[in-house]
């Protein structure tokens, strides 16, 4: 089993080449001297310099970051509550509708979500801007958080919570002292997921943003519609590096965490 057949080796190599070559080309040509993205004319970092001079991009990046921080934090709180209610809440009126509303946004085409939210905001007379994007992003990403957190809630031993309750904890204390520490990794990855979804979203933000608030994806989209440009390559490279560093760090931390947990469990068993 541990021996790789040539077929598997070839399919993995081709598969990962397909996934990564486009991004590698993108990164390489962000250091291209020439304005033409597809012709190499020597190494240069001038597009990064120009990017830093571009106020429109910097402003958009700032708006995007604000939206992402607020919406992912709100989505994490709401999504965790929703997951807790779904998994531990027992039966209540409208539970089916509730779980439907949690799962539906995951498969809803973004154009529909965006359109419907925009019509709501206009209907209630809310001016479109940072607030409306935050509300929109919170709504769809809380569903992702809720799915991530509830899969953790389902898999952990419920008797731990019951033990805490038997030993005199109030339900709130049991949640804070027992449940929350156990589901914390899922809550954190839920937050990260919500954060990236918000950073990445073009369609819903386009519908729900006003002229006062342009996010980075909206800016990038309007720029690349006109064709490829080395500045966008530079911007993409920065974003790709941030994500790469983030994902690698997160996976190392998780690995470390899992290893420590295993050690502690073994120690507990021995004791």
């Amino acid at each position: 089993m541990n021996r790789m057949s040539w077929f598997n080796a070839v399919s993995l190599t081709l598969g990962f080449a397909f996934l990564y070559i486009p991004m590698v080309i993108l990164v390489i040509f962000s250091f291209n001297e020439s304005k033409l993205v597809t012709v190499w004319a020597g190494f240069s970092t001038k597009w990064y310099g120009e990017l830093l001079q571009n106020d429109a991009f910097l402003n958009a990046a700032w708006v995007t970051l604000k939206v992402a921080v607020f919406s992912s934090t709100m989505a994490t709180v709401l999504g965790t509550i929703a997951a807790y209610v779904l998994v531990r809440g027992g039966r209540f009126m409208g539970r089916t509708l509730f779980s439907g509303m949690i799962y539906a946004p995951l498969v809803m085409p973004e154009v529909i979500t965006g359109l419907s939210l925009l019509l709501l905001f206009i209907g209630i007379g809310l001016d479109r801007g940072v607030l409306t994007i935050v509300l929109a992003h919170t709504t769809f990403s809380m569903c992702y958080v809720s799915v991530v957190v509830s899969s953790r809630l389902v898999s952990f031993d419920r008797s731990l919570e019951e033990a805490a309750l038997d030993l005199g904890c109030s339900p709130a204390e049991a949640f804070r002292l027992v449940t929350l520490p156990i589901i914390a990794p899922a809550v954190i990855s839920g937050w990260l997921l919500a954060f990236t979804l918000s950073l990445d979203d073009l369609v819903i933000a386009s519908f729900t943003s006003g002229p006062a608030a342009t996010t980075l994806p909206i800016k990038i989209f309007s720029a690349v519609r006109l064709g490829v440009s080395p500045e966008i390559n530079a911007l993409s490279t920065i974003m790709i590096s941030i994500v790469t560093v983030g994902v690698i760090t997160a996976s190392l931390v998780t690995k470390h965490h899992v290893a420590r947990q295993k050690r502690e469990e073994q120690a507990a068993v021995r004791a």
Binding site: P22, M23, L26, T196, L199, P217, I220, I240, V243
Partner: peptide
């Protein structure tokens, strides 16, 4: 995790 838009742009 990388931006969808950037992957299409590539």
């Amino acid at each position: 995790w990388t931006s969808f838009l950037i992957r299409v742009y590539a």
